[in-house]
Design a protein around this nucleic acid. Sequence first.
DNA 1: CTGTTAGCGCTTTCAG
DNA 2: CTGAAAGCGCTAACAG
Lengths: 350, 350
Amino acid sequence: MKSDQPKLTSSVGKRLAQRRQGVTLADVARIAKVSEITVSRVLRRQGAIAESTRERVLDAVQHVGYVPNRLAGGLASSGSKLVGVIVPSLTNIVFPEVLDGIRSALADTGFQAVIGVSDYDLNTEEELVASLLAWRPEAMVIAGVEHTPVARAMLEGSGVRIAEIMEIDSQPIDLAVGHSHRQAGYDTGRYLIDKGYRRFGYVGHDWTADRRAQLRHDGLVMALAEAGLELIDRSLHDGPSSTASGRSVLAALLSRQSALDVVVFSNDDMATGGVFHCMSAGIVPKVDLGLFGFNGLDIGQALPTPLSTLRSNRFLTGRTAIEMLLRQRDRPMQPEIIDTGYQILPGATA
Amino acid sequence: MKSDQPKLTSSVGKRLAQRRQGVTLADVARIAKVSEITVSRVLRRQGAIAESTRERVLDAVQHVGYVPNRLAGGLASSGSKLVGVIVPSLTNIVFPEVLDGIRSALADTGFQAVIGVSDYDLNTEEELVASLLAWRPEAMVIAGVEHTPVARAMLEGSGVRIAEIMEIDSQPIDLAVGHSHRQAGYDTGRYLIDKGYRRFGYVGHDWTADRRAQLRHDGLVMALAEAGLELIDRSLHDGPSSTASGRSVLAALLSRQSALDVVVFSNDDMATGGVFHCMSAGIVPKVDLGLFGFNGLDIGQALPTPLSTLRSNRFLTGRTAIEMLLRQRDRPMQPEIIDTGYQILPGATA
DNA sequence: CTGTTAGCGCTTTCAG
DNA sequence: CTGAAAGCGCTAACAG
């Protein structure tokens, strides 16, 4: 394998054999017969370099297959070109979508994201904050505004810019990007009440892990209360949201409570499962029973009866967070909040 | 904000004010009245340390809120505790699932994954290889076995262990973990032929981006040929797979070709869309038309008629890749291949 | 346009 | 059990 590499100047070859390490700037400099800093400048396109030396350096780089060492570069320049990102999950598709927005904003900036997954656990999140901060990121994106006191202290104390995303219902440390979940729940209630629904049921998943789902629920209940209504019944799945559980939990709810005219789900995964249950049970969505989700996932819109739901803008949220963070390296005097909003997708199930 | 931090010894406070940088080992050492190396040892639990000094150091760390600098640590020890990972996409759920397997294998090892997304583009992948290698990862995981010559050379030359995952149909650089897509396609064909299907159609997505889908297709055609059969018709969507396109492309195929008794889809996303089309068009899966997917996604199994498909083991693939890589730091003499296999899920659509 | 001199913050020797 | 000295590979800050 090693022998497949291009042949190197013997001195470099020897050093490599001894070190097992990679080629360094010094190696390139020696071959190009310039100083290390000149190589460094060429590679970073910084400062004026004579075209002839530039070529010589680039040739040398090619020749020895030099790959810069960012650990060293970051240390020397105290600028890691890293952004730390913490999300609760990868299996819930909304988070990969946020990451995709982050990726798109980071493209061509030279920044790399280092991603941590907290698994909806605040203590895990705290550990991740510490370990990501150890990479000296130049900014940090973290889902949610709820953190352990220690995690919060580390984030505040780090001095780097922090975007707390997906939620703007509380005051952020520095910047919040997302939308109000309480308001989304409230708007869901208003929309359905306006449609004439009166007998509300709710199908949800584990709240202790997903407080944003709870905020939406609370907003919904608030809208109902204002209209003199209340949730007639609700059923919660003890675990993360999924199509399968949406299906079974709706079945359970309906088996004990037949008087509902609409069911609001904690999100589209659950609601899609609900639609599947209806299909199996011969219940016609909207006609026999209204169903309403949250997120506006593609899958829900591709259903034979497209899901009535609220679309949140995950990609935009990720993208905006990064754009804001990179725009200004110092924290603002006042915490800032950016609402990326949501839209009602009327669909065909409510 | 800054003033909310715990009060620091005045000397440290002054240095911080000057540097805007974080607290360093030296600061902790001064406060604990030990040398830097002792602090370092305590933090890395390395070498014997008197319990009393250990406590003194830990107190100091707490007091000043010290966060180690991994750039410096990695540089000094030439060990980054980083694993580079490159996947083609985050929006196709199978990749987040692989990442989750990687994450689970990395948990409690002290390693961090740095993730790059190639967007199914080999040139982008090449850039990612270079930029991830610059972080001096101790191992690298990359989806697929197809790379640009330059990317391949960098991977080989890096000396670090490389796992090429999701595909074992070609010879890997170092280690391959996944399953044979050609074989999966072949087995799909055998399974359906044994079921009595004879008139095959195919609905797929963009092959240029997803060569594993093409391999499955080729395997399918091979099985058909062995049985003296051939694909009667096929329709390809010019873009990534999605439920929506599976739906419309099946509709298009059926509108021009009514003699099919089974349609094989490039994956479960497409197949789920196909099932949705059938629901809308009054076609009864399995009875009127067989449908077969690939991946074994949850959504397919939660359908009113669970999808007949092949389940690939994404989580296991990610997890196994990391376990193998961390088990042995040197590349094996011979490239190694690990088959994480797949299972037929009979379902109810074929 | 190019080079010299000092580190960045930590860990690896090697001593004691 | 603890420390002093010497870098890791690169870049900032000055020269020239």
